[in-house]
């Protein structure tokens, strides 16, 4: 079953066609990679899939766990997030001046089940829901080994942990499909290895479909089940890691062509 289906999407900025007629899909529980040289349009595709940009052409649909197909074209990001689509950002967008725990709790605000008045009088519902949020946040933080730092400011975490917190925050929204924009950027080899394992664990534990953009080929080839390759806004290849590695178009895009 496809949980995400984007058909023939294109987007034009001014005169520039940043993404041209791209069709991609994700099956339930898949771990997809989206690779390509800088400026190929990878993040732009993420932005379209999460509602930040509306595609100029094409359609995007998600199928949630209850089987309903939802067309998200032109939907606002917060609504897209509410149907179970979440993401991280290339340039880390944590709430830097808030604690690790608050970062997590904000992701759950959409499920807030008490009113403002309930918050003011601290109603029974308020107590229950706050407790529920807290427990859920701690559980996810434990999975990424950040529960010991729950009261620290996000900005004070080391870089690698900030990346992990961003992933944890995306999962805390209750997402079914998560888009990770360069999760291993700026990490050293051992951190990257650890992250690869962590992503696998989280995917299985939370029953996620994951799509990730990454430049670290070792990382991508190791964990992704299927890979899309993008160059100049056009999809140039699709397949399992082995096929991608030997695809002449991909090699050309990354290394350039030899002039005879």
């Amino acid at each position: 079953m496809n949980v995400m289906q984007a058909d023939h999407i294109s987007i034009v900025f001014g005169g520039l066609k940043a993404v041209d007629d791209v069709t991609i899909y994700a099956k339930k529980g898949e771990l997809l990679g989206l690779i390509g040289p800088n400026g190929a349009g990878k993040t732009t595709i993420f932005n379209m899939l999460t509602g930040v940009y509306a595609p100029t052409k094409g359609s995007i649909a998600f199928v949630n766990n209850s089987g309903a197909e939802i067309n998200i074209k032109g939907m606002q990001p917060y609504k897209v997030s509410r149907i179970g689509v979440s993401r991280t950002f290339q340039n880390i967008r944590l709430f830097k001046n808030l604690s690790v725990l608050d970062n997590m709790l904000i992701s759950m605000h959409k499920d807030v089940g008490y009113s403002v008045f309930g918050a003011i009088i601290k109603s029974g519902r308020y107590l229950n829901i706050e407790k529920e949020f807290y427990d859920k946040a701690i559980k996810i933080l434990q999975a990424v080994k950040l529960d010991g730092k729950k009261d620290e400011y996000a900005k004070n975490l080391p870089y690698g942990e900030q990346r992990k917190l961003e992933i944890a925050r995306a999962i805390a929204t209750g997402a079914e499909i998560v888009f990770l924009d360069e999760p291993a950027a700026g990490m050293n080899p051992s951190e990257t290895e650890e992250l690869a394992d962590l992503i696998q664990i989280l995917k299985n534990e939370y029953n996620l479909t994951i799509v990730l953009i990454e430049h670290d080929m070792k990382f991508v080839m190791k964990i992704c089940q299927r890979i899309y390759v993008l160059d100049f806004g056009i999809l140039i290849a699709e397949g399992v890691p082995k096929e991608i590695k030997s695809n002449p178009n991909v090699i050309k895009a990354y290394l350039g062509e030899e002039i005879e």
């Binding site: 999460t50 606002q76 997030s81 979440s86 993401r87 950002f89 967008r93 959409k110």
Partner: peptide
């Protein structure tokens, strides 16, 4: 932008 993406 981040808070919108987190469903706020």
């Amino acid at each position: 932008i981040a808070s919108e993406s987190m469903g706020v």
